[in-house]
Amino acid sequence: MEVKLRIKRYDSERDEKPHWQEFTVEAEPTDRVLDVLLHIKSYIDGTLVFRRSCAHGICGSDAMRINGLNRLACKTLVKDVSSPIEIEPLNGLPVIKDLIVDMQPFFEKFRIVKPYLVNDETPPPVEWRQTPEERERFDDTTKCILCASCTTSCPSFWTNREYLGPASLVQAHRFIFDSRDRAAAERLDVVNAREGVWRCRTIFNCAEACPREINITKAIGQLKKALVYNRF
């Protein structure tokens, strides 16, 4: 089948503003949008740039805006999106070139919630034990692949770049509700700040955008609830 694409092109070193470029390629309905992009880069226009690494929905490199929704190009089939397929870089992060955005602001907000296990106690002889119920509590938020689809789909983040954003709150949730972790109080302090959890307006764009289907808005709700019980 013939597939039409409209891709937003921009080179921060040369262009004043972005422009749309159209491509028409032959593709199978079961091809992924990533395959089509790779075809364009290999055979039509080598100057088109985008990130991709594993190409199997695990590394989270190829998140982009496809027909207005944030998705992974490697998990989106051509037959599932209407033609012309409009492809743009993620919204809310500075564009470096074409579909590549500067992820630095995103990872700063990721680091700020201490996204690692903190426990200074002497480890038990074999391993830290956890009941299935204790594990279940944060199971959903362990699935994050840091693709930034959620944060860059969030209108609160678009209007306020200081907002921690859903991805960062997902990481906070993952460790705050982990029974083996000991730094919940510190993380709750961070998410309780003005630019933390209270900027969330429960718009649900994040939950809709997440390629791992994490119920992010619910996780943020649990953080708010934890703060209410923790502070009052």
Binding site: P105, I112, E162, D189, N192, R194, W198, L227
Partner: peptide, 19 residues
Amino acid sequence: MTDRFVMSRARPSSNFELA
């Protein structure tokens, strides 16, 4: 980390937004 964010984080912890 940008200075801006470190600064916004360094604000005294308050429960105003929570309240």
